[in-house]
């Protein structure tokens, strides 16, 4: 994320800060990241913005000991696939040292990276354990 650039980060602030996705009212499916078109309902779809409540369950996780250069200061850290209560699955960092499959988690607001010491700071969601 270090090299993403301010404009690309800025375009996704709603998703990164507030987990804003979309929901198709026709088939009752929630999408995150947001989809403008429901792939199931196509033109019958009725898609609107929806803010997700940020709670979910750990489906699986891995602990990173050999990170890419921009995350070297953070290792070891855990990445998990979290199934949100509304249905979508997201890949995100877990802030706790210990994590188990099946743990209940909630979104928290953390630093994701920065464009170097003099660049823009990228904020967004990670997850913390509720157990």
């Amino acid at each position: 994320m270090t090299e993403m650039g301010a404009p690309r980060f800025w375009r996704n602030i709603q998703q990164r800060y507030r987990l804003t996705g979309t929901r198709c009212d026709t088939c009752d499916t929630t999408y995150f990241p947001p989809r403008q078109l429901c792939p199931e309902c196509r033109r019958e779809g009725d898609v609107e913005e929806q803010e997700l409540n940020g709670t979910g369950t750990v489906v699986t996780y891995t602990t990173v000991h050999e990170p890419s250069p921009e995350y070297e200061g953070d290792s070891p850290y855990s990445l998990a696939i979290v199934e949100l209560d509304e249905g979508p699955r997201v890949t995100a960092q877990i802030v706790d040292d210990e994590i188990q499959v099946g743990d209940e988690v909630e979104a928290c607001f953390r630093r994701m990276g920065e464009g170097g010491g003099d660049g823009v700071i990228y904020y967004g969601f990670k997850f913390r354990s509720l157990d």
Binding site: Y17, D74, C108, F109, R110, R111, M112, I121, Y123, K126
Partner: peptide, 16 residues
């Protein structure tokens, strides 16, 4: 603060 916490992240947590 944790490595990824600063005044902005904690302000957001308290504000939420």
């Amino acid at each position: 603060p944790d490595l990824d916490e600063d005044t902005a992240t904690m302000s957001v947590e308290a504000a939420r």
